[in-house]
Design a protein around this nucleic acid. Structure first.
Lengths: 246, 246
DNA sequence: GACTCTTGTTACCGCAAGTAACACTCGCAC
DNA sequence: GTGCGAGTGTTACTTGCGGTAACAAGAGTC
């Protein structure tokens, strides 16, 4: 009976099997398939509710709150997503997919490489700039914000940090792939591309995070600075005073 | 009475005041000062116990577990560190300080810049390689590890991710400072140095994280690859096929 | 001996994650 | 119609964690 496992995928699979089971792949009605799409639609609605609540409350969003926003109660959330991590993951892939679409577009634009790199950086930074709440939710664990009456505990909150690494890793892998297929890096280029993919993503992320918090300069300027860094200006810069070995 | 605030610093301050209060700055005994050092020693012992438990249990370390390891109970942990975040922060600065010492040494070595950069990268990577548990604790939110009987909840755990960003930011600031004071970057160099500091730290972190997990190459090779990236090899590499604007 | 300060305890609160068990409502078979 | 399987939804509960209040005991001070 598998009664300890609730999740959408499990049920969807069952539905598909039964659909394939009684042979008919009839076009218009097909109850099983219709049921499946209904489930998926519900799932999307729930995800949108979760999105709203996360955007509003930041990472201090409890399952109860999300369920309330969706107009239902906790257990059905658990039926759909298994656990909080499942919900989070579903939410995350939505946003990451959207971000990745933008990045791929920038990465594929038919302009010189430097411009392409700048466009990619700018796309990422624009994304985190225009939707900082989403960004914080995805990447950031509720940095201490000094509100909330002392009675309420400021703990809990989505366990977010626990999943930021996977996101960065996914971005890194994607970038690595693009680098690998577009640049001729000689022998061992595969490996090099992967290192660079992850490295560049990390650079973008850390710099973006800091920038978003301190806003020390314009976005365009940040893009220039980072592109300069990638273009080897670190190697080219002059020393300031001259220690022993310069 | 200030009964809602317990922490070592508060009490230490009080002790100092009373010491100054009744005048005597007597050298050998001085009860207040002795008390203070005793408190600090106790604090260190607690931190070491916490360290042990974190190293053993990974980030799923509860306050109860830490207290048990230290041979005491929760409330005194709270008296010393205020809340879990406080304990974490104390633990974190210990380790970050140690790491920073190593990095500063590498950054200050009297060799050509490329070698210095490589030494810095290697120092960081060596640190996370030799103490991955510490690293995971500091930076990483308990990536799903598929153990633990399903009865035990795999949630909670140190809230770790919630503080990884501050650590990276601190590293970034430190690196920025060194860059700023050693390189001549022309007008606006301050800002540039900060961007680079955070960017490089992010690069190091993300690449290191990925490398630690997949071990796709030797440490030395990773260092080379990253240094190459910083040295502008991305700009110099040849295209593979030639899209429109290459 | 009384006073204070620190260390330590037990026993509790509040809260969030996650579950069990039960109730309603369709659409479909016979 | 009646039965029934699958989904949706509920209330009420357990467990475990962070955090705190209230109290008890040892050590130095007057």
């Amino acid at each position: 009976m598998e009664n300890t496992q609730y999740n959408g995928r499990q049920r969807a699979t069952t539905a598909e099997q039964s659909a394939a089971g009684h042979g008919a792949a009839a076009a218009p009605p097909d109850p099983a398939r219709r049921q499946q799409t209904a489930t998926e639609r519900r799932r999307r609605e729930l995800l949108e509710a979760a999105d709203r609540v996360v955007l509003r409350d930041g990472p201090d969003a409890s399952m109860n709150a999300i369920a309330a926003e969706a107009g239902i109660t906790k257990p059905i959330l658990y039926r759909h997503f298994g656990d909080k991590g499942g919900l989070y993951r579903a939410l995350a892939v939505r946003h990451t997919d959207a971000l990745l679409d933008g990045l791929r577009a920038a990465l594929d634009s038919p302009v010189p490489r430097r411009d392409r790199v700048e466009a990619t950086l700018d796309t990422y930074l624009a994304a985190i700039e225009t939707r900082p709440q989403v960004y914080r939710f995805l990447m950031h664990p509720a940095d201490e914000k000094p509100d909330e009456k002392p009675g309420a505990d400021k703990d809990a909150g989505f366990d977010v940090g626990r999943h930021s690494a996977p996101l960065l890793r996914r971005l890194g892998e994607e970038l690595a792939e693009v680098i690998g297929e577009r640049l001729d890096l000689g022998p061992g280029g595969e490996e090099l591309a992967r290192v660079w993919g992850h490295g560049i993503v990390g650079m973008m992320h850390a710099a973006g995070d800091w920038w978003l918090r301190e806003r020390p300069c314009s976005r365009a300027q940040l893009v220039q600075h980072l592109a300069d860094l990638l273009w080897g200006r670190l190697a080219a810069a002059g020393d300031r005073l001259g220690g022993p070995g310069f």
